[in-house]
């Protein structure tokens, strides 16, 4: 069984294809969506979206955003997204620097979220480098 997977960034549609399962880095934990999943909406943390189709799997790096899951489709709306193989050290450094800045200047109520985001980026960078 397959369903539709779409990855969209503000500037363009990055992927639109059939998939059997989609792994999503949700803000409250990773999840895998399969066809006929209940309607679900989650915010993403920085991480990898993995799309499995016909035994192959492709990973996309997303810097955050949200995912909309319906029984027929998964739509990932990411602010920044590229295929895993295209992730560069400079890109990660830039995102980490931006997250650091955000964490430093964050107010009382947003500091925890900003720090969480920074540590997510660092974990991910280590994971991708290794």
């Amino acid at each position: 069984m397959a369903f539709r997977f779409e990855l969209v960034s503000p500037e363009r549609r990055l992927a639109s294809r059939e998939a059997e399962a989609v792994g999503i880095p949700g803000v409250e934990g990773d999840l895998t969506a399969m066809p006929a999943h209940a309607p679900f909406l989650t915010v993403l943390r920085p991480g990898l979206v993995t799309v499995t189709a016909g035994g192959d799997s492709t990973a996309y790096f997303v810097s955050g955003g949200f995912a909309e899951i319906t029984p027929e489709a998964v739509t990932v709306l990411a602010e920044e997204a590229v295929e895993r193989s295209e992730v560069t050290r400079e890109m990660l450094d830039r995102l980490i620097a931006a997250a650091e800045k955000a964490a430093d200047s964050a107010g009382e109520d947003t500091r925890i979220a900003a720090q969480q985001r920074l540590s997510d980026f660092r974990t991910l960078a280590a994971q991708l480098a290794g």
Partner: peptide, 28 residues
């Protein structure tokens, strides 16, 4: 016509996360 979603985190937290992005999207 959207289906009845389950939300993670809860609806208001998502809303608080999405509204600033929506401002950027509309300006874009």
């Amino acid at each position: 016509d959207a289906p009845n979603y389950e939300y993670e985190p809860d609806e208001e937290a998502i809303l608080a996360d999405l509204l600033p992005r929506s401002v950027a999207t509309q300006i874009f």
